[in-house]
Design a protein around this nucleic acid. Sequence first.
DNA 1: GCCAACGTTGGC
DNA 2: GCCAACGTTGGC
Length: 203
Amino acid sequence: MPKRKRQISSAKRTALRQSERQETTKRENNLEKQTTETQQFFLLKSEPESRLEKGVDVRFSIQDLQNEPDQSATWDGVRNYQARNILKSMRKDDLAFFYHSNCKEPGIVGIVRIIKEAFPDPTQFEPKSPYYDPKSSKDNPTWYAVQVKLEEVWERKVTLQELKKYDDLSDMDLFKRSRLSVQKILEHQWKFILDLLQKNKQL
DNA sequence: GCCAACGTTGGC
DNA sequence: GCCAACGTTGGC
């Protein structure tokens, strides 16, 4: 093992200690996630094809997310109370399927990670936004958003048509509450869909 | 582009 | 608080 240099500035030492501390905190957080929390799973719908709403293109495909700085985006524009409540239940490091809706071939195209928990959706206060809500106030915001980061872009889309075929998935909100744009996914459904993806890859 | 399903609004 | 009318979502 090489000897450490004796001459190390106190600033460097402080920085080192700090980065060690950060690493330790990171590990502890991960451990805590594994042992005391249960990871949750969700499905987020987004429209991959251009469509104007109040003169603004509301398209947001997984490729659009891929092109964002840091491959991260604010999941805003949710204007349904049930969907909002599900958004609020999301915790950091939960995962969500990225679903392409209102398009030729609807289906799941990848996975995103929740990197910031619910905060007031800024678009509700922007008059120019298609998601503007004049009834909402900054003191008591009606709508919330989360921050997501791209985790996986699948080479193959798992289509709605395919998802419909399996009894294991028949309870999914995708079929039962087809209009809900933010949905909870049960663990067995999550795993089943990942298995499906694997099988498809082998075909 | 049609329209079924379903969420929201508002009169009573 | 009911429910008809209306608006929106999203598959097809």
